[in-house]
C-alpha cells in the first residue's frame, strides 16, 4: 500500500505560524504520497537539526517547525548561515528550503506494522450494535470489516498517542453521537463518520465505541512516549474478553 517517494513532487510552500514557528506544506490533500514526504522531511529534520530548532509537528499534509528566534538570530549574526539575513523567519525559511530540495533521494521502503488486540462489543463496545444497525450489518460483520483492513497512521494529535488513521471502509462509517459522552475509558476503539481511532487516555468524546484494547497507547515513562508513530501501519486483532488481561501487542518491521 505504501509507495516509495518518486520524483515529480509539487513544490512545498512555507508560511509563518507566529514569530517562532514555520509551517511547511507538502500538498493540498490527504494521501499517501504527501504523507511520505511529510515523514521523510520530519526524519531528516530530526536527524539534522539546525541551531535553534526546538520541536516539530508533522500533520496530514504539513510539518510545522518550532524554533528559538534568538538562537537562530545569533547564528545569523555569527555568519554561520550564508547571507546577511536578519529575520529569524527568513533564516529558518532558507534552511528548510534547502532541506526540502535535498529530500529527492530519500527512500522509504520500511515501516512498522503494529497489531492491536481489540475486544469488540459487550461492555467494551457499547455502540457496536448501533454501528451495525446504521449500516444494515450484523455486529460480527462490523468486526470483520473493521479488523481486516490495514490502517495508516497519518499523524498523532488530539491527545497523547492518539492516531489519526486512514483506511477505514465506508461500509461501517457512522456519525458521532449527537451529544458526547462525559468520559470514554482509555483504550476505547471508536468510529466517527469514516474515521476510526483509539482513545489513549480517558476523555469526553462523541465517537461510536465498538471495542476496547488493553494496549497502552500513551507511554509517559518510555521514549518515545507513544506506542504508535506517524507512518506506522496498524491492524486490529479481535480477541475474546477472556484474553483481555493477557494480551500482547505485536510489532514487526515490514520491508518491501
Amino acid at each position: 500500500m505504501l509507495q516509495p517517494i518518486s520524483g515529480g513532487r509539487a513544490k512545498s510552500q512555507m508560511k509563518p505560524l507566529g514569530d517562532s514557528a514555520i509551517l511547511v506544506q507538502f500538498g493540498a490533500e490527504i494521501n499517501e504520497d504527501v504523507h511520505l514526504r511529510v515523514k521523510a522531511f520530519t526524519d531528516y529534520l530530526e536527524t539534522h537539526p539546525f541551531a535553534g530548532f526546538l520541536d516539530c509537528i508533522p500533520a496530514f499534509t504539513s510539518v510545522t517547525v518550532f524554533y528559538n528566534p534568538l538562537v537562530v538570530r545569533r547564528q545569523g549574526d555569527s555568519g554561520s548561515f550564508s547571507g546577511k539575513e536578519r529575520s529569524p523567519y527568513k533564516i529558518v525559511h532558507s534552511i528548510l528550503e534547502e532541506m526540502v530540495t535535498g529530500l529527492e533521494e530519500t527512500n522509504t521502503d520500511k515501516w512498522r506494522v503494529v497489531e492491536i488486540p481489540v475486544c469488540y462489543g459487550g461492555e467494551f463496545g457499547p455502540d457496536l450494535e448501533a454501528v451495525a444497525r446504521h449500516n444494515h450489518l450484523l455486529p460480527s460483520e462490523v468486526i470483520t470489516i473493521h479488523s481486516e483492513a490495514d490502517y495508516l497512521v497519518y499523524m498523532i494529535g488530539f491527545a497523547p498517542g492518539f492516531p489519526y488513521l486512514g483506511g477505514m471502509s465506508e461500509k461501517i462509517a457512522t456519525p458521532r453521537h449527537t451529544s458526547p459522552r462525559l468520559s470514554i475509558p482509555a483504550g476505547s476503539v471508536g468510529i466517527a463518520c469514516s474515521q476510526t481511532g483509539v482513545y489513549p487516555i480517558s476523555t469526553p468524546g462523541g465517537w461510536q465505541i465498538i471495542g476496547r484494547t488493553p494496549a497502552d497507547l500513551f507511554l509517559p515513562d518510555e521514549n518515545p512516549p507513544s506506542l504508535l508513530q506517524s507512518g506506522d501501519v496498524i491492524r486490529f486483532k479481535p480477541i475474546p474478553p477472556e484474553e483481555y488481561k493477557i494480551y500482547k501487542v505485536r510489532i514487526y518491521e515490514h520491508k518491501s
Binding site: L54, C56, F66, G157, P225, S226, Q229
Partner: peptide
C-alpha cells in the same frame, strides 16, 4: 515540554 508534540504530548 518540547520535543514530544509529534506524539500528541502538549507543551
Amino acid at each position: 515540554r518540547y520535543g514530544f508534540q509529534k506524539y500528541g504530548v502538549i507543551v
